[in-house]
Design a protein around this nucleic acid. Sequence first.
DNA 1: CCGACTTTGTGCATCCGTTCACAAACGTCG
DNA 2: CGACGTTTGTGAACGGATGCACAAAGTCGG
Lengths: 262, 262
Amino acid sequence: MPSPAESPAPADVPDTSPGAAAPVPFTGEDTTPGGEDPRPGRPLPEATVARLPVYLRALYALAERGVATVASDELAVAAGVNSAKLRKDLSHLGSYGIRGVGYDVDYLVYQVSRALGLTQKWPVVIVGAGNLGRALANYGGFVNRGFRISAILDSEQTVVGREIGGVAVRHVSDLEEVVATSGAAIGVIAVPANGAQVVCDRLVAAGVTSILNFAPLVLNVPAGVDVRKVDLSIELQILAFHAQRRFAERCGQVPGPAAVEA
Amino acid sequence: MPSPAESPAPADVPDTSPGAAAPVPFTGEDTTPGGEDPRPGRPLPEATVARLPVYLRALYALAERGVATVASDELAVAAGVNSAKLRKDLSHLGSYGIRGVGYDVDYLVYQVSRALGLTQKWPVVIVGAGNLGRALANYGGFVNRGFRISAILDSEQTVVGREIGGVAVRHVSDLEEVVATSGAAIGVIAVPANGAQVVCDRLVAAGVTSILNFAPLVLNVPAGVDVRKVDLSIELQILAFHAQRRFAERCGQVPGPAAVEA
DNA sequence: CCGACTTTGTGCATCCGTTCACAAACGTCG
DNA sequence: CGACGTTTGTGAACGGATGCACAAAGTCGG
């Protein structure tokens, strides 16, 4: 199971009972142009799932340029992956290519979107209206690609009421109500580390089952809740490792980082 | 077996100074150049490198709580990973644990920091002073953990001169000069997608070899330049996939209204 | 209608990462 | 000083991911 929280301790799981099932965000879809594909087995490899959004973005860019069909080689270049990998990834969704021609861009956009569950708009609750929360709310790729910001919450009264990305900031005390009324299943934590676990617990208790965490700590969640984390400093540290290695191996012309000042 | 004579003082002399290495033209694999005492073979698996920052953060938290030694089980829980995985990861750095006891927290902090190349402060140039750039500049985990913001650049004259995180915003036209004078090898791209490739090219031309990209596109860089991307919408889309799957599968326990489409 | 060309889809070998399970090493206690 | 419990470090098995290479399947020109 793809549960990232690998805690085999069953006794500790408080079994978050969502009580009244959170309203499923609009399940009406399908029956759209093109042929139908009875969902095959659903074993989509995790690595494939992680790449599908990249393909989707490249496909959108192609569609905007008016490209009707695309071969796996071109799409692979646009997505920055190997073409064989791309073909294998797409083959997991079904046989949506035409041999000798390539893939129909619009049709593939639809199929990838459907595989990712983006044929509907997922309501998202953002907690934290700091710089990061504002950046998220203003990020265009959000609302245009299958998501809708249903609320932005913050604990600072000075920012409550301010409008960000077309949504007015509400106080964090409204968290439970906002989640319930919007039916949001996805929450974004963009608060400082010391308040993240509390926010997380409240989100989970309110029925949120998918959490995107920007706070630099490991969140503790019950089984059944999916957490992904984005940590800016971790990415930088990985870069530092490779940079260090590069400097150590090829001591060339660059004078290296200014290590004197510390 | 950390000898008590060796102080685990984190501010030890970093040997990353370029020095005068033999100008080897090209070697397929380094033949373990010298360093044998602290550094065994250098093939640190990529997956391990990606986890070391997580361990480091957990170790810092333990150190602040005054914990002197920690067993792999506890540290694994704090880092959210399997304990066997953690031990294998750490074993790639060397044998820094004590059987029957655990790891010395301070000493391990130093060793992990050194492995990641964080015993020095890396100067970082941030391009883009929007919400995201400001969030990065104000992020505490930046300056406290091996990095120093040497400059923040933006193309908007209205924000030039504003101070963010203790650093005054400069105009993006100063990019080359800033990179040269600060010796920055790491650049962060926090500009909109349409300007990201241009900024990237200029950073690379100025000598930057490590780039952290927040713009939602695939950057084109020459060989030898390391790019890591952080894409907010991609993470959300992966969450959406799992959420969709969860909704489709929950037909057994939760009192759902009706079995959704098979 | 046929042959040449193009591109997809995939079998297969290989590699990387994860996990189990256990022996070696260490401190402690009697 | 020796037995015992604890914890590390790692060999080995396993599973998943990657990329090559090629057959199948399609288009296109004559």
